[in-house]
Amino acid sequence: MSAIKVENLSCVYGAKTPFEQHAVKKVSFEINKGDFVGLIGHTGSGKSTLVQMLNGLIKPTTGKVYVDSVDLWAKPKEIRKFRFKVGLVFQYPEYQLFEETVYKDIAFGPTNMGLSQSEIKERVIHAANFVGLKDELLNKSPFDLSGGEKRRAAIAGVIAMDPQVLILDEPTAGLDPVGRNVLLSQISQYQKAKNNTVILVSHSMEDVARVTNKVMVMNKGNLAMFDDTAAVFARSDELSKMGLRVPQITRVIEALREKGIDLPSGVLTVDKAVMEITELLKKEGKL
């Protein structure tokens, strides 16, 4: 079942001026419920514009967005409703924290939805749980948290709206390897527990390779690829032409394949690579 469907979506900035810029050009795709999609493309490829059209922050110049088979812009006055259905976490979301306590900040979205106090409370605690924020932090000022905790509190603020589609723009930017790993597995667990659709916008191919099952590649405003993660990263030549690098491990295995070594394509993680290589060695009796 499709969670989000996009038809001929285009966005033009500064139309009919010398600065006219086609940020997104006639993009169509359909994302199924329960998919974990990676969205990659280098800066200026139209990724940000695209995701902001998915929750109605930017009105498409042409084309349609359907969430749960409902046209987003059928009733422009009710566009706010869709922001709760398609949750968008911006890059460096900790810069949006503003309330006196972490609790109130996470409750901002649910409060805007007009939920009852008891329901809000339930959602806040639930969301804080998902991102691994301890209960005692909820009564602290968000400005007293550490960098990583702030990031997680901000993400919880979107999760608390219980969106059917969760979009995260570079959620791990600026975090160190530990913070990155922890946050990624939390998002992954959230996705599995809810079986919701998650779209992860990222520059880190390693991150995308680790958690997603599908990948969309944007290039110069076009949707260049949309396929299973392994299938996309197997096309490393095309990706590097778009200025994208596949994970180091995938590159190494692809290079070995080119030299005639009998390994499968689309190896995305070190563990998988270790397994494939030792198996091959065993098969050839070298191990």
Partner: peptide, 20 residues
């Protein structure tokens, strides 16, 4: 100490540990 190593280093390390 929860620090990363480059993926290729980790690959070599794991292969070595398995007797390669």
């Amino acid at each position: 100490h929860r620090l990363d190593v480059p993926q290729v280093t980790e690959l070599c390390y794991n292969l070595k540990a398995r007797g390669v």
